[in-house]
């Protein structure tokens, strides 16, 4: 039963989270690069959302509110040992889907994984969630200047790694 006595808030929460789970998982998996851990992140964010639902449901931008929760859960748990993360699942994991271009996806995944967590968060918010520098700063709780410098460094690192991957592919093609 929900905390409003008649279960209305519970039903609203369930309807909202059910509709947003897939989207939250996608953002989470880009943030942490690990589908299993992404589930933990989403679940932790969903629990926090439940705790604050009375306030959150009144937010002008509920999606932004939840995304901010998710990103901050991700950043806050960087120093947390794996064994402390609690999984709430009903079934064992299923096989992940397949990328349209597996080599390219692997290159990008490796390049993303090499970034620090805050830089990765900036890349995901800017280029996956399509937020502006200022919007990203608000979600991360930092300044636009910090977002820009993190973004610049992240893009430079991605470029260096993707270029190296390109060069490797070219070498392989020449040898083939």
């Amino acid at each position: 039963m929900g905390w409003d006595g008649d279960g209305t808030a519970d039903a609203e929460y369930t309807a909202y989270v059910t509709g947003r789970l897939a989207w939250l998982h996608k953002v989470a998996v880009l943030l942490c690069q690990d589908p299993a851990r992404a589930e933990d992140l989403v679940q932790t964010a969903a629990i926090r959302l439940y705790v604050h639902w009375a306030r959150a449901r009144k937010a002008d931008n509920l999606d932004g509110y939840v995304r901010t929760l998710l990103v901050r859960v991700f950043l806050a748990e960087q120093g947390t040992a794996w064994w402390r993360r609690v999984v709430t699942v009903r079934q064992p994991p299923d096989a992940a889907g397949r990328a349209a271009d597996p080599d390219a996806a692997l290159d990008l995944r490796a390049a993303l994984a090499a970034l620090g967590p805050r830089q990765r968060a900036v890349v995901v918010l800017r280029f996956y969630c399509d937020l502006s520098v200022e919007q990203t700063a608000r979600e991360l709780g930092c300044t636009p200047g910090t977002v820009k410098s993190q973004s610049s460094r992240a893009l430079a690192a991605l470029r260096a790694r993707l270029t190296a991957a390109d060069d490797r592919d070219l070498s392989r093609e020449r040898l083939a």
Partner: peptide
């Protein structure tokens, strides 16, 4: 690329919302 990666990496959702609540 990020969209491709997100689509490819996410397994079917198995979060237990009753437990979350």
């Amino acid at each position: 690329g990020l969209h491709d990666l997100a689509e490819a990496s996410v397994p079917p959702i198995r979060t237990d919302l009753a437990d979350v609540r």
